[in-house]
């Protein structure tokens, strides 16, 4: 059974993205072990000269390192990823690189009908940067719009079509994780390139 780390891309207490991840954790518990992790509580990234990364970021990095893949649920603020998630990704690419070659699946829930499409594209762009270097599952946008009516009292998705879509996507993701293990030919060069970036005072 594969182990996945699921990042909640927001710090708000009432988050439908957290709810969506909790649903996935229960729904797929026969297939996979999903651990949900909060990204809030990290200090604002200020590129400290001593390159000291907060312990909490190191802990998250360790868990990602030990996982088979990462699922990120992002809301959309101002047509983009929330600052709190961007901040976590900055710490998680400053001298440490847990995302390098890590398979990532992006999902998102929103109140409106559009369901975080712009934030997901933004997140893809970030994860694709050399400092993060994740392997993002292609053609796999999963959006849940109008979330206020999407879950029942138990926090389960109500729309059968949405559940079927999620099932199919997750099956594909598991396959993608497997295939990704064979995409190792660039790993060494990427590691060298990223070490070079680390030695320069980028930004």
């Amino acid at each position: 059974m594969n182990k996945y780390i699921a990042l909640v891309g927001t710090n708000t207490k009432q988050s439908t993205n957290r709810q969506l991840l909790q649903f996935m954790k229960r729904h797929f518990d026969q297939k996979a072990a999903i651990e949900i992790i909060e990204v809030s509580g990290l200090p604002m990234f200020n590129k400290p000269a001593d390159r000291e990364v907060p312990q909490r970021a190191k802990d998250i990095a360790k868990k990602i390192d030990a996982s088979d893949g990462v699922i990120i649920a992002t809301p959309e603020y101002d047509h983009a990823v929330p600052a709190v998630l961007m901040n976590a990704l900055e710490w998680l690419s400053y001298g440490i690189h847990p995302f390098l070659d890590k398979p990532v699946m992006i999902i998102g829930a929103s109140f409106g009908a559009l369901g975080t499409s712009r934030a997901q594209a933004h997140l893809r762009q970030m994860l694709d940067s050399p400092e993060l270097g994740a392997r993002i599952m292609p053609s796999s946008e999963y959006l849940v719009g109008n979330v206020l009516s999407a879950f029942d009292d138990q926090g389960n998705l109500t729309d059968k079509e949405k559940i079927d879509q999620l099932d199919a996507l997750f099956t594909d993701f598991e396959k993608f994780v497997k295939i990704s293990k064979e995409l190792w030919h660039t790993t060494d060069v990427n590691r060298v390139a990223i070490k070079k970036l680390d030695h320069e005072d980028f930004g």
Partner: peptide, 8 residues
């Protein structure tokens, strides 16, 4: 940073 603006 990371192909985007800073979190700050």
């Amino acid at each position: 940073h990371n192909h985007t603006i800073t979190a700050a």
